[in-house]
Design a protein around this nucleic acid. Structure first.
Length: 206
DNA sequence: AACCATTACAACCGCACAACT
DNA sequence: GAGTTGTGCGGTTGTAATGGT
């Protein structure tokens, strides 16, 4: 479908950003694949969408994560696992990509969670997609953190993978109602029903 | 000052699903 | 119903920035 080198890759320039912002201002979000045709921008629609969502969108908060945000993310991760979009949906101004990166670079280290115990080198995990099959099989260290009732919840991966979160959220609507406009306060659930104590997690945190 | 290692973040890739034709 | 397109998600990779020697 797509020509091999038709689209540019790598970091976005300020000029490209302004083109994309102008397009969204005029046409609104969506139909990302039309952007290169309409604007002449040498970026695929997928890249445009990502750039907008993660960087250009006015609602995106930038800069350091606060302690409150860290705490929130840890709690939500205990509850939801790697459902980054769901977690990000509960952290105002943060995108799933930001949350995911922050978790992988900061929080997982601080919590002593080792992603892939066999692949010890920092970068070179085996790139096999098989990780999709067992990515919810938390490390032992993480299991220690998982002192919630979430084991009683169906694993999102039990329903397949990829966008299974949609399916999952439907099945859990009666439980958490995660994506409704007036959602149940997940933290309340955590505090009252799951008794997640993060004191042990936070000792040593800055 | 120069080099190397590490960190933090931006971006890409592949997959899956829903909507549309 | 089958095929195509658009979108969203999570994992992974690339690279700029920073720190240490």
């Amino acid at each position: 479908m797509e020509e091999k080198s038709e689209y540019k890759k790598g970091l976005w320039s300020a000029e490209e950003d302004s083109i994309l912002m102008e397009y969204v201002r005029k046409h609104g979000k969506g139909k990302w694949n039309r952007i290169p045709k309409v604007t002449g921008l040498k970026r695929c629609g997928k890249s445009c969408r990502l750039r907008w969502i993660n960087y250009l969108s006015p609602g995106v908060k930038r800069g350091r994560f606060s302690d409150q945000e860290n705490d929130l993310i840890i709690r939500l991760h205990n509850l939801l696992g790697n459902r980054w979009s769901l977690i990000a949906g509960r952290v105002p101004g943060r995108t799933d990509n930001q949350v995911k990166n922050h978790w992988n670079t900061h929080l997982s280290k601080k919590l002593g969670i080792i992603k892939n115990p066999t692949a010890h080198s920092s970068q070179s995990q085996t790139p096999s997609k098989s990780s999709r099959d067992d990515d919810n099989s938390h490390s032992q260290a993480q299991d220690q953190v998982m002192m919630t009732n979430t084991d009683a919840l169906p694993s999102p991966r039990d329903y397949g993978n990829g966008s299974s979160s949609r399916f999952w959220q439907c099945h859990n609507n009666d439980h958490f109602n995660l994506h409704t406009p007036t959602p149940v306060n997940v933290l309340d659930l955590l505090d009252h029903d799951h008794h997640v104590s993060l004191d042990f997690v936070w000792h040593g945190f800055a």
